[in-house]
Computed example of a mutant assay.
Amino acid sequence: MTMATAILALIVIINGIFAFKLVQDLRKNKSELKKEPGSNIFLSISSAVIFFFSTFGVSDFAISTILYRKKKLVSDKKLPGTLNAQCVIPVAVMALAYISVIEVSPVTLIVCIVAQIIGAYIGPRFVVKLDPKVIRRFISVGLLVATAFILAGKFNLVPSGGTATALTGGKLVTAAVALFIFGALNNIGIGSYALTMATIYALGMNPAVAFPIMMGACTFSVPVGSMEFIKFGEYGRKITLFASTFGVIGVLVAVYLVKGLDVSMIQWVVAAILLYSGLSMLINELKSSSKKEENEQLAAAK
């Protein structure tokens, strides 16, 4: 058995256990499931769309949070569990598909996945001491700078990207350290998709390699926490059910499109995602700070 095959087998086993727990809970709580808000048609379409874009690296957490709050489909208390549980099966399909169709060194893939899992596990004891706002602003600027470099390369202003499918030596260590940090940052709500894309690009790898790496890391770390949400019933059952079925359809369509894109087109996709991620993060932080200052001024005036 090759390392790639072993990784695929582990993905199936871990996510199979999650699926078993999910089905058990859904069958046990049929009455509660039927009472949850959201039309079947709406959830079918939205799930497919959300995970279509997620397959390209656009955060399903961000899109889902905005959509579910606006439609009042789930309470804020159950939102974290819903965001995690709904993405487990679609992300597993992404990982299986990308690892199967996109060439990447098994050693590079395993090192990056393990580094991010370790970061997600031991990271909280460190990141809780940091100011999330400062980190988000720093990262948003970094993503915009990364976008500028990619665009400069596309217009032949600087050397552009690379074609490597494996990392060795110092570059592999750099990638491991970066993915460890990204795993830790997940605990304060900073997604790793855009950061992983920027890192892979900066290290001279084929931009497409970012997809199996970032999906592979998530598909090992998310199911474990999601099973705890299921255990305590702290998630939206109806949303998760539809996302686990119709979300997969969106994933398969997107994977087919990514597989058919050449490196040049993927570079444009990566640039667009980094630009979107950097701007949205920066704008949200600036709005949050502005609102906080207004509240403080009002409180002082009283």
Rank of each mutant, 00 (worst) to 15 (best):
residue 193 Y to L: 15
residue 190 I to E: 14
residue 213 I to M: 05
residue 204 G to V: 09
residue 211 F to H: 06
residue 208 A to T: 12
residue 178 A to Y: 10
residue 176 A to C: 05
residue 210 A to W: 05
residue 176 A to Y: 01
residue 166 A to V: 06
residue 185 L to T: 13
residue 189 G to L: 13
residue 198 A to H: 05
residue 163 T to S: 15
residue 166 A to G: 10
residue 178 A to L: 13
residue 190 I to T: 14
residue 158 V to T: 15
residue 183 G to F: 11
residue 209 V to D: 01
residue 212 P to Q: 13
residue 207 P to M: 00
residue 182 F to I: 09
residue 162 G to W: 04
residue 175 A to Y: 01
residue 174 T to P: 07
residue 184 A to P: 08
residue 189 G to Y: 14
residue 167 L to N: 05
residue 198 A to V: 08
residue 164 A to T: 02
residue 191 G to I: 14
residue 186 N to V: 15
residue 157 L to Q: 05
residue 166 A to P: 07
residue 209 V to M: 00
residue 193 Y to G: 13
residue 206 N to Q: 08
residue 211 F to S: 05
residue 167 L to W: 09
residue 182 F to S: 08
residue 206 N to H: 07
residue 173 V to E: 06
residue 164 A to S: 04
residue 158 V to S: 03
residue 178 A to M: 13
residue 204 G to M: 06
residue 187 N to M: 13
residue 173 V to N: 07
residue 177 V to S: 10
residue 194 A to M: 11
residue 185 L to Y: 14
residue 191 G to N: 05
residue 158 V to C: 01
residue 195 L to R: 10
residue 180 F to P: 01
residue 192 S to T: 13
residue 198 A to L: 03
residue 154 K to F: 00
residue 182 F to M: 12
residue 210 A to H: 08
residue 189 G to N: 11
residue 200 I to E: 04
residue 199 T to G: 05
residue 163 T to K: 12
residue 198 A to M: 01
residue 205 M to A: 03
residue 171 K to V: 03
residue 201 Y to G: 09
residue 181 I to A: 15
residue 180 F to D: 02
residue 197 M to V: 07
residue 151 L to H: 01
residue 165 T to L: 04
residue 186 N to A: 14
residue 163 T to A: 12
residue 207 P to K: 03
residue 210 A to L: 02
residue 212 P to F: 09
residue 160 S to M: 07
residue 172 L to S: 06
residue 200 I to N: 06
residue 183 G to L: 11
residue 151 L to N: 01
